[in-house]
């Protein structure tokens, strides 16, 4: 893909997106519009298809039908690498770090996105001094929160225009989650379109500007984060009882 990198935060438009694992379809025709520069929280219970949808947006999984448009670029068959070069930063579920590489090596990998290696280190260590102390340590031996910090550090350093976060809070203490979400808010304020998939509703709605609830592979409702947050508990319980 020869598309030049994004210079401003673009809107994301999903039309009729379907996705399946083998013959089992888990996303059934999702239409979603994420405004440019917004922090969009995609809420929903386990198995709703949120992470699968994020995989499609980040190019890690090919949709079986529908389109994903980032700004005015209609992505037919984007690869994760091409999207990364475009300015889309995806942090997958379960810590987006290389466990057998040192903290420093992990940071240097992100210099693929056109930022110099020294700049990446400078930005990351300035925000997370703890990472500097542990720069020679294998990432797999860091605590869960530190690993997530390392993953977020690349979002800070890479200057992305779209940030896709999958279950940032998974397995972390509430204090750590609060710290990470504060950081997401800071990144968003620099003019980045953020999509966050989250089960931990309270934190997500605090930083979000828009939200949607996903149930059974389809968008159940969209609206303000507060409305969606209130509706989420009810929707989860209803889903759990189904």
């Amino acid at each position: 893909m020869r598309t030049p990198p994004l210079t401003t935060a673009p809107p994301l438009v999903l039309s009729g997106v379907r996705a399946a694992y083998g013959r089992i379809e888990v996303v059934h025709g999702v239409d979603l519009s994420v405004p440019a520069g917004s922090v969009f929280a995609l809420l929903g219970p386990n198995g709703a298809g949120k992470s699968t949808l994020l995989k499609v947006i980040s190019g890690r999984m090919r949709q079986t039908a529908g389109t994903v448009a980032i700004g005015d670029i209609d992505l037919k068959r984007p690869t994760p690498a091409a999207l990364a070069k475009l300015g889309v930063c995806a942090i997958p579920e379960g810590r987006g770090v290389f466990p057998n590489l040192t903290v420093r090596d992990n940071l240097l990998i992100w210099s693929y996105q056109g930022v110099s290696a020294s700049k990446v280190e400078e930005i990351a260590y300035e925000r997370f001094p703890k990472l500097k102390e542990r720069r020679r340590q294998l990432a797999g031996t860091l605590s869960g929160g530190e690993q997530q910090m390392l993953a977020i550090a690349r979002a800070l350093a890479g200057d992305p225009k779209v940030l896709l976060l999958d279950e940032l809070s998974m397995g972390l203490a509430p204090l750590v989650v609060a710290e990470l979400y504060e950081l997401v808010g800071q990144i968003a304020s620099r003019g980045v379109t953020v999509v966050l998939v989250e089960q931990f509703v309270t934190m997500a709605v605090e930083v979000a500007t828009d939200a949607a609830i996903m149930l059974h592979g389809a968008i159940h409702a969209t609206g303000s984060p507060q409305e969606m947050g209130a509706m989420a508990a009810q929707a989860y319980l209803a889903d759990g009882g189904a």
């Binding site: 690498a81 990364a84 997958p92 290389f98 992100w110």
Partner: peptide, 20 residues
């Protein structure tokens, strides 16, 4: 470094902009 990273997680490396 990318050569070592690709063994750990090729998908994540792709998300960093390299071709695994």
């Amino acid at each position: 470094i990318a050569m070592r990273a690709v063994v750990d997680d090729p998908d994540l490396l792709a998300m960093a902009g390299a071709s695994p």
